[in-house]
Amino acid sequence: MINKLALTLFLLSFSQIYSQDLIVDKASYKALYNLTYLRDSTNLQKKSEEKMLLLVGKKYSLFQSENNRFNDSVKANLVNQFNNKKIDAQTGVNMALTQNKYTLFDFKIIKSNTEHIVIDKIFSDKFYYKEQQNLNWVITDETKQINSYLCQKATTSYAGRSYIAWFSNSIPIADGPYKFAGLPGLIIEMYDTRFHYHFEMLSLEQKTDYFSFDLAKIQKTSKVEFFNALANLKKDIIGQLEQRGFSFDESNTIQIKRTIKNNRNNQIELQID
């Protein structure tokens, strides 16, 4: 009996090491998108902005907020220094805190040809779920010039929103912002038809960057489960933000609080397809 269990455990651990749980890739290009979005669908005046990164690797691409990536790299560096006994734990925590950059997007979307792996957080707990890539793109012959790129319009719908994407086939990267990919060229601009989420590419740079994720160390879940858990925590979000040390200008406090309170009422995914 014990032998059987040991064998199972051994096999499990073996399979985890050699399965696709370890994702490693080297990115050669970095596309930077500016995301303008409406946190609160009841306040159409107030749009928020955040910069998002698309790192294009050989096998995978990674999409996440620029600040989130920065924070991750600071943390990784500090953990490394701590492991090499260059700093003590307290200093590490302090340094991570002082360098931490504000972001509302903790997700990391790892896209491959077949499926997306989404790593996200509910406060400090990390989860990942897998999602099949099955966007139904319709391309039109409508074109527009965005800077030096001739872009072509394509439409699709996803998670309760209809989208318009402008891609350029002069950039042979079949990728784009968020979970969107699969057009014959990079998506330069993309927005939903209500204009609540608007991605605009700011730059495309050659950049060698490595990313790696060990899924074995992350709690696996399903998309449905994850979204349910998130919904349960909606109410407490403001308090948590202020607890983390974000302070707001006295005179605008109530408006800011109101905005933050409503900040998750208009998420990019309105429903699970």
């Binding site: 040809n113 001739l150 079949a174």
Partner: peptide, 24 residues
């Protein structure tokens, strides 16, 4: 070579009429 984009256009034009992305 997966992830390759194959597009069909009119001769010497760039507007994509049809496309495909190569699979695994």
């Amino acid at each position: 070579l997966s992830g390759t984009s194959i597009t069909a256009t009119k001769i010497n034009e760039s507007v994509v009429n049809a496309y495909a992305i190569s699979d695994y």
